[in-house]
Design a protein around this nucleic acid. Structure first.
Lengths: 215, 215
DNA sequence: TTTAATATTGAATGAATATTCAATAAATGA
DNA sequence: TCATTTATTGAATATTCATTCAATATTAAA
């Protein structure tokens, strides 16, 4: 086997392996949505995907690695929620508060993402340092993304964008947590508009402050 | 046995029963702090308390009831954190923003309370309606307490105190969630002061708005 | 002391758990 | 075709789980 052929072969093997791993993680995630992560066993995942538990353990030598894989998956998913927001706002070098707020609180939240799995895994941060670091990385990333967005607007760029991002995200996260408890559609909408307004005001106050300074 | 004696007897029995149940719940809580609630079994609680698992099941016929008992316990504990704040502020019919903020974000949080157990149980709200209702009740109660407090101050009473309480608590909850990830003391303090300032501003803006209106 | 309720014990249950292992099948280049 | 690596299978493991049950101990009134 030539070196090139070998590398290609290795690449193929890795690809197959990666795909299989992804299939297992996705199965794990789907079952977790349905039954709660704490009720999902390796045997159940196997049954769900039509493979023996031993095959799962071939790709994930122990359950913790499987859980870590799931967490990497959902944190990636979580970030994806914000992708369309970023793409839209990145083009214009201007942050329109109303648009930003609407996108930050968009309903894609609940559709693309299972809060139950997210919070179950979050609870693990208290007992697993690796998981804690993953969650922290996510939060830092999200805040940085927003900061970068704000930095592109000449108005906000004059203020403390990191601080503003911090203040905005704490409301988003509080809302994300609190709203997950509310099932009544009308009540949900009412509260949602309160929190949107709250973030909107943060943006308004900040931009007003900056403009006043430079008059 | 006279009726009175019977009632007394019944009362005694109930008291013993209640105390035993409390002992079990406390043991469950202590172990959950140490090992994570998902790793605590009835057998482990029994070992920890020096009693056979069958005795635990005598008081809690199945594990779900035991978990519900634990949740009632921690939600009660959670409320207690706010007790000193309320007592202090209730006497004066005046809300001092700085004092209120300092108390709302007091460090008794982390000392009296285990975040890991709280969030693990919170994750259960997504799969158990009873638990969800309990958590919701807690949040409503906390908001109402703050609203009542604000209502006692003639300044804030003129505004929408329910709305203000809602806005304050969403920051507290977001902060509670987010700060739980941060271990570095300095970083924690820095972020904490941001969120305190954020709530402080909510109070300031609101009171200023009300005072302006009545000039 | 008798009675009746409750408290406590310890042994036993079957089901489910993560994990191991040996055997076979499939893929792929030499 | 052969050799080697990886993928897949299915059976077996010990351990832990919540729960059941029958037997005994304790309590306190009658």
């Amino acid at each position: 086997m030539t070196k090139l052929a070998f590398l290609f072969y290795e690449g193929m093997k890795k690809k197959v392996k990666a795909e299989k791993k992804k299939e297992i993680i996705t199965g794990f995630y789907d079952l977790s949505r349905l039954e709660g992560i704490e009720n999902v066993s390796i045997a159940k995942i196997g049954k769900h995907l039509g493979m023996p538990p031993s095959l799962i353990m071939h790709y994930f030598p122990n359950k913790r690695l499987l859980v870590l894989g799931l967490i990497a998956h959902i944190l990636h998913q979580y970030q994806l929620i914000y992708k369309p927001i970023i793409n839209k706002l990145e083009k214009d070098h201007k942050v329109y508060p109303e648009l930003l707020v609407n996108r930050l609180f968009s309903r894609e939240w609940n559709l693309l993402f299972d809060d139950g799995v997210f919070f179950s895994c979050f609870a693990m941060t208290f007992r697993d340092e690796t998981i804690k670091k993953e969650y922290k990385k996510l939060h830092i990333k999200l805040r940085n993304t927003l900061k970068t967005l704000l930095d592109k607007d000449p108005v906000f760029a004059r203020g403390d964008t990191a601080l503003l991002a911090e203040k905005i995200f704490v409301v988003i996260e509080g809302a994300y947590y609190y709203l997950s408890l509310i099932e009544d559609e009308k009540e949900y909408e009412r509260k949602l508009s309160i929190f949107k307004d709250q973030v909107f005001q943060l943006l308004q106050v900040e931009s007003q402050l900056i403009l006043d300074e430079n008059e």
